[in-house]
Write a protein that binds this DNA or RNA. Structure first.
Length: 589
RNA sequence: GGUCCCAUAGCUCAGCUGGAUAGAGCAACAGAUUUCUAAUCUGUAGGUCAUAGGUUCGAAUCCUAUUGGGAUCACCA
């Protein structure tokens, strides 16, 4: 649409002898109730024209129509110049822009971006909150890749620390040698079971101590189990053979379980980092920061940064005993990642509860003048809450990721079987379809919402399969495929005679042309929701067209071939758009 | 207490850098299938865009304050 903007600029120069920047021309899609496809807002130009908005619109419109052969007409309503482009223009768009294989594929832009997401703890299985994280991270990575970036997907696994020791200790104490094999439990679930058990026993001990007269705080510190867990962590850090062996065994169980969950979710990673490797990093950066005067040392030997000027607090970066804190580690890890990949941008997909942490981390790295620090971004997303409140693994009040995915596929099965459309499918095809649809419903449900908004999930209200949902879009795709399969070989040349567009056809082409802009906007704002909503609008537009116009029974051969081309283009864009969300589309459903 | 985020129809959400009469889906009601997949389509009903000011030709959108909800401010990660 740049050519319209250019023509408008030229019109204003010619008519009112004023130079305006292309950015000053406000171009928008014409609202459905008016004639035309693009609209120029004329209010800003009245100060140059010294005329009414209507008259200004007519003058600019007249100029543009004379200037551009693509413009077939215009109307002005209350200062809005609605421009109609000729059918020929839209048909050309379909053939020469949309249908070619390279439509909406951006040239490599030479920039490298890292997307870090998932970042699980190895003491418990993944839950719904992690699903949101994983889907967001994966989708953002896909979108950035589509927008021309070179993308590296990383997963920083939190595989050490006191919480891991809690699971280990509880297993050691109460597990009786239970293994995934002996219990039939998925490894991550088995370990999670002992994490919950630890908390239960720990609470019991706290109550006992309180009954014996201790305050709550004292009881929490003095309970035998927590002391043992702390001791275990020290042994781990000291490299105790037995503890390390247990740690390795239990983590292996967890990784086997995670791998299954990731596979089911359809997410992948290019590089794993482990905190057990990185938790000691960052100390050299402390020295560097002290030398540069960015950090300062207090009398007790602890190291701090003063960020009060930035509206933040003083922040500890190294303990008085010389050991690292979370911030130290993250500084070190950031450096490590940069050394490994030299990326221009680095996206951290982490919940909004860590907004403060990342603000501080990025500020520190910038103050240190670290390479790549200008490209740091925290993709902060809202928590997934239940009607009962926040999910807490410790207390078992979570929607488990594996359970939820299984449930979604079960619901998909019920809904699909009820239609009777899959009777001819093999058992394998059916299972595959249930998977595609169930996961499509879940993924779309989570991705259509703006990432930064918190999400309420009611387990008692099932995720919809109708309306503004993944299955709606998948269905539209299956519908298109069905028609195309019936049509057999397409004949573009046969469509050449078609030169008069019906409104539904024009609307559909207009919608299709907007795909690249949607990708660009989604990439710039790191928001899969943009793509989700775009694809939904497109599917709706197609369904309307499908309903109004017969394809295979079209009036004549040219109409039929044209509509087949239009359908094929729609199917491709839906497929590609859904792929950016990590959602598959079926051939039949 | 300081800081950050959020608030749009009964419910779940769109609304791009300020632009026309604020849009979808679900739920409710009424319709459409001798015709390419009805997981679809059409229509009806549903709004003080949290509140109050301000900036502007023009504000759901920008600014300020207030209210409500959430998060965070550890020598935890």
């Amino acid at each position: 649409m740049d050519f319209i903007v250019e023509a408008a600029v030229k019109a204003i120069k010619h008519l009112y002898d004023t130079d305006v920047a292309p950015g000053d021309v406000n171009l928008q899609e014409t609202r459905k109730e008016f004639e035309g496809q693009v609209t120029v807002v004329t209010f800003p130009f009245t100060r140059f024209s010294k005329k009414s908005p209507e008259q200004t619109g007519v003058e600019i419109g007249t100029f543009i129509q004379n200037e551009l052969k693509e413009v077939s007409g215009f109307n002005v309503i209350k200062g809005f110049l609605n421009i109609s482009l000729a059918d020929d223009y839209w048909i050309t768009q379909l053939y020469h822009t949309i249908l070619p294989a390279d439509f909406a594929s951006f040239k490599p832009n030479g920039a490298k971006v890292m997307v870090e997401y998932s970042s699980p703890n190895t003491n418990k299985p993944l839950h719904l909150g992690h699903i949101r994280n994983n889907l967001l991270g994966f989708s953002v990575a896909e979108i950035l890749a589509a927008a021309g970036y070179e993308v590296i997907k990383t997963n920083l696994v939190n595989d050490r620390g006191i919480h891991i020791c809690k699971s280990m200790l509880a297993w050691q104490r109460f597990g009786n040698g239970e293994t995934p094999e002996s219990s039939g439990l998925k490894g991550d679930h088995l370990v999670g079971k002992y994490y919950v058990l630890f908390d239960k026993e720990y609470k019991k001990q706290i109550e006992e101590l309180k009954a014996a007269g201790q305050t709550e705080d004292d009881a929490k510190k003095n309970a035998l189990l927590i002391k043992e867990a702390q001791q275990m962590l020290q042994q781990w850090e000291a490299g105790d053979e037995e503890v390390l062996s247990l740690w390795k065994t239990m983590n292996r169980w967890v990784y086997t379980g995670f791998a299954e969950t990731y596979k089911e979710l359809g997410v992948t990673f290019d590089k794993f980092y482990y905190e057990s490797d990185t938790y000691l990093l960052g100390k050299d950066i402390i020295e560097e920061g002290l030398a540069k005067g960015v950090f300062f040392r207090k009398d007790d030997n602890s190291v701090w940064i003063d960020l009060t000027e930035e509206g933040l607090d003083e922040k500890l970066v190294l303990r008085s005993d010389g050991t690292s804190v979370y911030m130290t580690q993250d500084m070190g890890t950031a450096q490590l990642k940069y050394n490994d990949f030299h990326m221009d941008r680095s996206i951290y997909v982490v919940g909004n509860e860590q907004d403060y942490h990342f603000k501080v981390l990025f500020t520190i790295l910038k103050k240190l003048g670290k390479q790549g620090s200008e490209g740091l971004f925290h993709l902060s997303y809202g928590m997934v809450d239940l009607p009962s409140g926040k999910m807490k693994s410790r207390e078992g009040t979570v929607v488990d990721a594996d359970d939820l995915m299984a449930e979604m596929q079960q619901t998909a099965k019920v809904q699909t079987d009820a239609t009777g459309k899959v009777d001819g499918f093999s058992e394998e095809e059916k299972l595959h379809l249930y998977h595609i649809i169930g996961m499509g419903a879940l993924k779309y449900f989570l991705l259509k919402v703006d990432p930064k908004k918190r999400l309420l999930f009611d387990p008692n209200e099932s995720v919809d399969f109708q309306g503004h949902t993944g299955p709606f879009i998948q269905y539209t795709h299956a519908r298109i495929r069905s028609v195309l399969n019936r049509a057999g070989l397409l004949d573009i040349a046969g469509a050449a005679a078609y030169d008069q567009l019906a409104p539904e056809e024009r609307d559909l082409i207009v919608a299709l042309t907007q795909f690249p802009e949607a990708i660009k906007l989604a990439a710039d704002t790191y928001s899969p929701a943009i793509i989700a909503n775009y694809v939904y609008e497109l599917a709706k537009t197609f369904n309307k067209f499908y309903h109004e116009k017969s394809i295979l029974q079209a009036e004549d051969e040219a109409s039929k071939q044209f509509r087949l081309q239009l359908s094929a283009a729609s199917g491709k864009v839906i497929n590609k758009g859904m792929k950016l969300l990590g959602i598959e589309v079926p051939e039949r459903m």
